[in-house]
Design a protein around this nucleic acid. Structure first.
Lengths: 206, 206
DNA sequence: GCCGTTTGTAACGCTCCGTTACAAGGTGGC
DNA sequence: GCCACCTTGTAACGGAGCGTTACAAACGGC
């Protein structure tokens, strides 16, 4: 769980109490120290005290076994709805941008600025692909990974869409698109974004 | 209840379903139209469907009779804790407004003032849409979410009304409506409001 | 009821992107 | 070196997503 939490964002965590190893209550308390992700405890430990303790510790809801799947779903939706309604919550994009080789990619504005300072028009798909690259620089990314990172979907068997997107992106950011330096092809592997990428806090000045 | 709600602020509302006159579910739904005050349904109607419906309608929790007073207290505390943790919640001063890129949106007066200081006429629908954007900046909002946030309704299958509203809004606030920077389109995703938004207490003038 | 405003829907045209096809380039066996 | 096979680059096509306009329905002020 800990490594999964490191890797990505989660909307809701449903936690059993009775588990081998660390028990759910301890996990929940530890979670609360670092994160505000909603936690629903789901457990057979159904005494009044168990429930009160679970809720006091930081759980957002407490469902006891046996439980109704529909009700659990409804309670999960309550947590999602709340996260969405909360001001400033949700998956807001970070207020910082990425710089590489003079280029600036701004996730907040979804813009790309060339070394010369010109706004380069990129399509939504090209932007997402480039964002996937700059957030994973200097590592070989398979087409599968890129498709997942950029478009959140899995690849079909003969999927060549990433190749085409890369080709289109190269035309816009490579000095010489037929001899690409930024996005290198790794034969039988995928692609690799070669520049060093710096994350800089955006100047939101007037 | 209605007059009490008019009179003051409440942190949590505990609502019975079975009541003479208007039933709790209807009350809850009506509440949700105007307010985000947490609602805990407390009732003897304990079937699975009752609970699911209650939660779907907008209740934040659903406790069935017979209930443990300690557990109810714990669940009330969960709601209080959440309200406190939510940034900007509770403190929602009616006469504060939103500023972005020189623009000022004033929810209290329902007015929009341009960077130059001119009052820009926006329709009620455009205002609600813009309000949805400024309260959820820098996150990709689906058409569904926008429709819900701005008009409180769900989308039909071929609903394009948000597109049209966005187009109309862009005409009024974008420097170059054909190359929009404030409201960006995320293809197959929705729209994103890109500026940083500051909440400022309004100067109600001399 | 009448008229102006607002808003949802339909329609058209443009852009974007996935797919396909084919050519070019790389790789390994001989 | 030569050849067959695999991988990749890119052009072209067509479908889907989107922006915009026009029009009709709904709404509100009088």
């Amino acid at each position: 769980m800990e490594s999964a939490l490191q890797a990505g964002r989660f909307d809701v965590i449903v936690l059993d109490v009775m588990m081998p190893g660390t028990d759910g209550l301890t996990l929940c308390r530890r979670l609360r120290e670092k994160s505000a992700t909603p936690v629903i405890m789901l457990t057979a430990a159904a005494t009044e005290t168990d429930r009160v303790v679970g809720l006091e510790i930081g759980a957002d809801d407490y469902v006891t076994k046996p439980f109704s799947p529909r009700e659990l779903l409804a309670r999960i939706r309550v947590q999602l709805r709340r996260a969405q309604a909360a001001p400033g919550a949700g998956r807001q994009v970070p207020n910082s941008c990425y710089r590489f080789e003079g280029w600036t990619l701004d996730p907040a504005r979804r813009t790309l600025v060339s070394p010369a300072g010109a706004l380069v028009e990129v399509t939504s798909g090209e932007f997402d692909l480039l964002l996937a690259f700059v957030t994973h620089p200097r590592m070989i990314l398979t087409r599968d990974q890129l498709l997942d990172l950029a478009h959140g979907r899995a690849a079909n068997v003969f999927d060549r869409s990433i190749d085409v997107q890369v080709s289109r992106l190269r035309r816009k950011i490579e000095v010489n698109p037929s001899d690409p330096l930024l996005i290198r092809t790794v034969r039988a592997g995928g692609y690799m974004f070669t520049p060093q990428v710096d994350t800089v806090d955006q100047d939101d000045g007037p």
